[in-house]
Design a binder for these strands. Sequence first.
RNA 1: GCCCACAUAGCUCAGUCGGUAGAGCACUUCCUUGGUAAGGAAGAGGUCGUCAGUUCGAUUCUGAUUGUGGGCUCCA
Length: 639
Amino acid sequence: MPVITLPDGTTKTFDSPVTVAQVAASIGAGLAKAAIAGKVNDKLVDTFYTINDDANLRIITDRDPEGLEIIRHSTAHLLAHAVKTLYPTAQVTIGPVIENGFYYDFAFSHTFTTEDLAKIEAKMQEIVEQNYQVSRKEVSRDEAIKYFRSIGEEYKVRIIEDISADEQLSIYQQGDFADLCRGPHVPSTGMLKAFKLTKVSGAYWRGDSKNEMLQRVYGTAWKDKKALEEYLKQQEEIEKRDHRKIAKNMDLFHFQDIAAGMVFWHENGWAIYQQVKQYISDRIAEDGYQQVATPQIVDLDLWRRSGHWDMFGEEMFTVESDNRQYAVKPMNCPCHVQIFNQGLRSYRDLPIRLAEFGYLHRNELSGAMHGLMRVRQMVQDDAHIFCAEDQIQEESARFIRLLIDVYKDFGFNEIIVRLATRPDKRLGTDALWDQTEGALAAALKSSGLTFEYRPGEGAFYGPKVEFHLKDSIGRTWQCGTLQLDYAMPGRLDAYYIAEDGSKKVPVMLHRAILGSLERFLGILIEHYAGKFPVWLAPVQAVIMNITDKQASYVEEISRELKKHGLRVKSDLRNEKIGFKIREHTLENVPYLLVAGDREVENRTLSVRTQDGKDLGVMPVDKYLELVKAEIQRRGRVET
RNA sequence: GCCCACAUAGCUCAGUCGGUAGAGCACUUCCUUGGUAAGGAAGAGGUCGUCAGUUCGAUUCUGAUUGUGGGCUCCA
């Protein structure tokens, strides 16, 4: 006689074991129809799951996040069902839920094209209309293996062999399609009403590039057509924020095949770039860094000694001259060690913080390039801190404080922080790793940041903290980083004289706030959708005349504003004022200044902002004051 | 590097079932001197990414190549 307790605390008593569906039906016909699954004592189950004993039960519908997830998972099965129907020799592998949708990986000799997607989607629709009941069968390991082998699904067999022996296996069946799955699933295919296959791509079996490549079909699924359409529309909006599109519109930079992965910066983009660089330059100077510059091409010998040639030789550009082999530097650190090594260092000199905006070249795989986000030539706001072991935590904490403050100036409040810990292949003792990982974790905690661990993802020489930011479509990109390095200083013979007169090897902290300036600008463009705050805007104001009569006044004021450091352009074209306003609004110029006869007479300007606000007519001095205050505020969001 | 797709005027795109291409915006000239998101007219502009092959003829078909986009892998 199970007693079912519902989320609102009410109980229902049944004479005999009941299914989730029956409980839902006992509450109401509407709920019975909407039920996707149940949550029995916090465990997600199918609607046809039988409850034998007293239990807490929540009926899951498409309004619950869990419901949406089940819909997406079931849609992945629906996709596999359709593919197997159309192409019986395709083999199924895995089909998980991802953000906004799902994918399914197939092994198949014929490659899916975009046209095939339409066909598959139509077949999925048919299966939905058939409204197949979904059923679940628990099977033993041997049964499962035997079954999938009998229908030629070798990948499923490999998957089963990898599942731990104590786990209960289950097979879900809809129509003539069966798939190994933990579940739960929607009770019938007719409940899948809003989905769309979005793209097809390759993906390695088990995510390993040594393995064969499978075909991955991506899709999105929602609770109803309206939600699907909203999502698709939102995606379109988001695409407009793409930094590559905005760059064309605002004339920021371009790429060309004569130098793939390297940026041709135009005046406007370079203005932002320089502004960002100068800002960091000022911030780190305040924080006790020395700025240095080191050679672009350096003898290969240095890279052999540092270990980079062995690890990353393939991604380095090389140059030969006078029988000597050089590498174009992929990073600054070995060069900074050379500066550290000049002269004799004392423990009193530490920490030494060497910063450089050096050009770095890395021959990234051709398929890895991605607008500004992944390039072959970049500049990092790179610095290396040489310090004693007992200074690590303080230096780490100090860096993190600086980073958070800098990010605030750019208006970033959502930072994803990851602490990557010891990898399998590593240098140093476990005790040392315990200590260094602990130091970084402590530094993060003291700054109040929440972070997640990334086990095994640290560098071979030390743990690292990664600071990620999101681009417009939600992909995360590593920007800032902080890495502890016990290896390189020793390899390159760096030492200092300790208090007791002995030679000691310093610890090296590799750190960057923005990471690659190129990538950071990409993120920044998308973050602001091109509508930069005044301090960063490539053109901060455009002054325009109404008729030719005000031309000389406009030129005069333009010169004056430039004298105060503003990036100003004048627009004296023979066009109507409405036309000019429209054009510069679309160019994301923050201030539109208009001078007609009235303004000339009173030596004023009519001030309008990019977002269409009319600030009225004001004297030039007052405008300067206003704009300077705004520049001072940078991108801080008042909280 | 791997999988799929794409590459046509400065930009956004259309088009040619194989007979050397078209729109809108931008550009140039002229008219217009107009007060806050597009005034009007005329004109100019492309050997259809590159290299091969098939063909009487290729921007269109085939192959290779380069680049780009979306993924996968990688990311010192």
